[in-house]
Amino acid sequence: MKSLLKNAREQKGLKTRELAQLSGIDQALISKFESGTRKPTKDQVTKLAQLLEIDYEILMVAWLKEKILYEIGDEEFALKALLLVEQEIQKNKKELNSELLSSYQIILDEIEILKTKIQSFNHFELRQISKTLELQFIFSSIHSNGNLLTQNEIKSVINDGLTISGKSMQNHLEAINFHEILVYIKDLIQKKTFLNEKDFLIIHNLMFRGIESENLGKYKSDSLILREMNLLFNWCELHKNNINPIILASEAYLKILEINPFENGNHQMANLLLNWILLQHNYVYATIEANQNSKEEYLSVLEKSQVKNDKSIFINYILKIEKENLNRAIQLITK
């Protein structure tokens, strides 16, 4: 770990004194970290990883390795103990995942029943559901960003190419762009293309086409963001077959907001990523209704989830929203 810290500091062109000022860590301590005579705390590792743009996972693994070596490296039965620790960690992780899944299981089962019912509808009925929910999703998505078009006006703009008097060109472009994004996502799903970084950036480009001229389809100029986004898509790929799609989508949403990769549109991109995953698995859009109460509930749930660092709060909220939208879809046909 000492070489990781020293090399990263030197590559950034920082002196230990300058790093001390930036990090709030005593200069003498930083020198000891780099010489290996002192070990940083976990909080200090996190801070140094961010400032020196070292991959957090790599630095944490190095920190844990040295911590373990310091504690038991010279013990006669260290290897046997480590094997037992590995088994115990894997067991605890499985139990934790099982416990979390069981807490969601009732509503997950209800959602699957509703989803199966929708899949039993004929082609015409499914098309009716798709068009209606898609329009509601576009309206909710752009309305939350201050767009003044009504749902019927959006329908006229998208389907008939009409210009709505008294509404700005940006309002029109936001509706058109969002519709084109959904067409693009549906085409990817048809081709069985799983979500990936290249198409994610294309979607960001589509969102602001004709509205902004800079930063379209580009992350902020920050190498840490590039690494974090790469890790996010690797994580999605790794877990796409072993985590329930709604849970996977909800966690991906939270990760996007945590990374905050774009200058503009982070909430909308998180929402599009979430619904991209849902649609890939034949769920319906998890649309949050475009009214003040629903918006306040969403913001409250998101804040509580972030402050408490408890993703289950947000996951349960998305499960509830998805169930509501599945019921709404069924009512379109059966009412």
Rank of each mutant, 00 (worst) to 15 (best):
N230A: 00
K240P: 01
I203Q: 06
E251G: 09
F194W: 14
H172E: 06
N177M: 08
N230Y: 02
I181R: 02
L162M: 12
L272T: 14
D222R: 04
I185K: 15
E237L: 13
F194H: 11
K295P: 02
L274I: 07
N266K: 00
G161K: 10
G217A: 07
V284Y: 01
Y283P: 08
G210P: 06
I288L: 06
E237C: 04
I246R: 10
L273D: 13
I243M: 15
R209W: 07
Q292Y: 08
F178A: 01
S165R: 10
L238Y: 04
E251T: 15
G161D: 08
D222S: 15
L173M: 12
E180T: 09
G161A: 02
I243G: 01
L162N: 13
N291F: 01
L216Y: 05
I288N: 02
M207V: 07
L299D: 00
F200V: 14
S221N: 15
E197G: 01
H204P: 07
S250E: 07
Y219H: 15
T287K: 01
I259P: 06
L278D: 10
N242D: 11
H172M: 09
I176W: 06
L238G: 01
I189W: 01
Y298T: 00
L231K: 05
E214I: 11
N234R: 01
L231N: 14
L254W: 03
N282S: 11
L238A: 04
G210Q: 00
E263A: 15
N241R: 08
